[in-house]
Design a protein around this nucleic acid. Structure first.
Lengths: 143, 143
DNA sequence: AATATTATTGTAATGATATAACGTTTGAAG
DNA sequence: CTTCAAACGTTATATCATTACAATAATATT
């Protein structure tokens, strides 16, 4: 079984089902996509998904991407240590790269202080193209 | 009339109505709030608002705040010059402070390059408390 | 073990945000 | 004036999220 249960220990059945669906996905999933995927396991209503997601986000195991209205499993085991997380979202393939950078955190903190603003939560989402998708387009593959 | 018409020149009637509503607001407005406010001017359907908003965003005169599903008039006349715009959104009073910082732009650009990612659009939204609202809470006003 | 307490779940209904599809009107270019 | 593209009006529908309430399961207290 390996590390499969490492994070699941304190999760309820519904939370674990949602968490596994997100871990197995290779792009962010919407709540309703999760619902459809989990109907086979007995899910019947959106709220079952939203409640599980609320908890998983609270636990720091899942991130909500505001610009997509979708959710993605946290890829950084020490995510909670970081103040600011940036996401690079490829418009083409949907893959998300999660980055925590102390310099970025500091810079944002400075900007906020200069504006007499106290930050509680930050949303940093860059959309564009990953290298693979850029290469694919450049090569002009037509088949 | 002053500078009132400076931006309105090329706008259609609906675009101008939406633009003025946003300029007169002291916080971001949702599309449906705009619709309700503009019923007096003849608006009947969400699409009238969304179409105007699409154009205004395209023109760089309005920003969409992803974390609020709401829209705000651009406060920086040279907004289009800037690659990255950060928004500080006060949870309490709703006011938004728009900031463009070259250092932040550079930092994000560097992060992206290190990840072989090409940025097309950035979403940077900090939520928290502005100074006024923090002061108000600290003074513990109870009346 | 029995009871109280709290968290989680199931379900239905509804609210909030956004777009598709279609036909009509308007306004600028030839 | 005709042509063409952009903007508009309207209806319907898709998508995202929460409220409200009852039932159940898990945990703690006696």
């Amino acid at each position: 079984m390996g590390d499969e249960t490492k994070f699941d220990v304190n999760l309820t059945k519904n939370q674990a089902l949602v968490m596994n669906a997100l871990k197995n996905a290779d792009a962010p999933l919407s709540a309703y996509t999760l619902l459809d995927e989990l109907r086979a396991e007995g899910f019947r209503a959106p709220l079952q998904v939203y409640r599980a997601l609320d908890k998983l986000v609270e636990f720091g195991m899942v991130h909500r991407l505001e610009s997509l209205n979708a959710f993605v499993a946290c890829s950084d085991p020490r995510c909670n240590d970081h103040k600011t997380t940036a996401f690079m979202i490829c418009d083409t393939c949907g893959q998300v790269n999660e980055i925590s950078d102390p310099k970025l955190t500091n810079q944002l903190q400075n900007l906020a202080q200069n504006s007499d603003f106290s930050v509680k939560k930050s949303t940093i989402e860059l959309s564009g193209s990953c290298q693979d998708c850029a290469d694919y387009k450049t090569n002009d593959v037509t088949r």
